[in-house]
Design a protein around this nucleic acid. Structure first.
Lengths: 174, 174
DNA sequence: CTATTTTAGTTCACTGGTGAAATATAAATC
DNA sequence: GATTTATATTTCACCAGTGAACTAAAATAG
């Protein structure tokens, strides 16, 4: 039940009907926007499902992966907040739980003692290397029937959309 | 700070480096997947920002919109759960708050007394009609530089991806 | 230099969302 | 017709994420 196909069909109809009542509605845009939200939501669920056996949630995983991907293997809470789009409050908790599991360490920076350095441990690296590969097949399946052109197109369109969203938020702050 | 462009640049590099350490990584797919997650997250934030003045959150808004889009203006908690991909628990709370604001009513079904009928009120309809139009310009701006072909392509690719995700979750249940 | 402002991080209180158990009704089976 | 099974919703206890206030250290201005 409740597969995406059904949800999308229902949404198509729903937006159609709303457009009848409120003709100024930009129906095509609303549809694309809702599709993005719906798929984002679903992918997040799928990911969290894969993370559950490892007792990680999405933001903890993302934080750990950023550290793993760094040549130095370290970062600060502030920087991690930016790249994970998390609040500082939450990053404190994420760091707490990762530290408790010995996947990262947290030490005060000696140069700027306001700052804290979060660094992935060797155990953290091993953990990532072990948990990552089993997720590859699913990742592949997500885009199984996407040809090279499809992939390039989707990549291009998503980056274009990202540009527009950046403009939107800049305009909002100005 | 922390605009999407920077996040994406950082992600491109990060996935590149992880791919060097773990060559089996399907880098292109991982990138598309993360792009979807990132954009979904950003769009959700943008939406919630627009909803805040009306004291609604995303799931309350979505629930109300589904009711609004129905010819009968009504549904049941179970059905709303399916289409909003929310748990039943949360739908109870959503209904509670919408009822408290007199935007919907909640009455026991006479046919099947386990069921509950949730129906949008005239005030709820007026509320939607008033709050919706101010969001149209932003919605337009999101896809401002998307030509007709771009829109069609994005629509097609997202629906294709949805099909794959449905297969994935079906396979998981089987 | 010292006083003020800015920056980095944490703590606290709250909102939003979830899984497991409870409740109530309907449908199926014996 | 009684009993089991399935379905719909709610309640409860907990996890995840946020805004506001707080603490400490740098940077800057007077």
């Amino acid at each position: 039940m409740a597969n995406l196909a059904n949800c999308i069909a229902m949404m198509d109809e729903g937006i159609g009907r709303v457009g009848q009542i409120i003709p100024q509605l930009p129906a095509r845009e609303a549809l694309l926007c809702r599709l993005m939200l719906m798929l984002g939501h679903t992918i997040e669920r799928e990911l969290e499902f894969n993370l559950k056996p490892h007792k990680l949630n999405h933001s903890e995983f993302l934080t750990l992966m950023i550290l793993y991907s760094r040549p130095e293997g370290s970062s600060t809470p502030g920087e991690l907040c930016e790249y994970t789009t998390q609040g500082a409050t939450n990053m404190t908790r994420i760091a707490n739980t990762l530290v408790k599991r010995r996947l990262v360490t947290r030490v005060a920076s000696s140069k700027d003692r306001r700052r804290v350095l979060i660094r992935i441990t060797p155990a953290g690296r091993r953990f990532v290397q072990k948990m990552l590969p089993p997720m590859f097949p699913q990742l592949g399946a997500m885009f199984a029937n996407f040809g090279d052109t499809d992939r390039r197109q989707l990549d291009r369109l998503l980056r274009k959309l990202a540009g527009n969203l950046d403009q939107l938020s800049e305009r909002r702050l100005a």
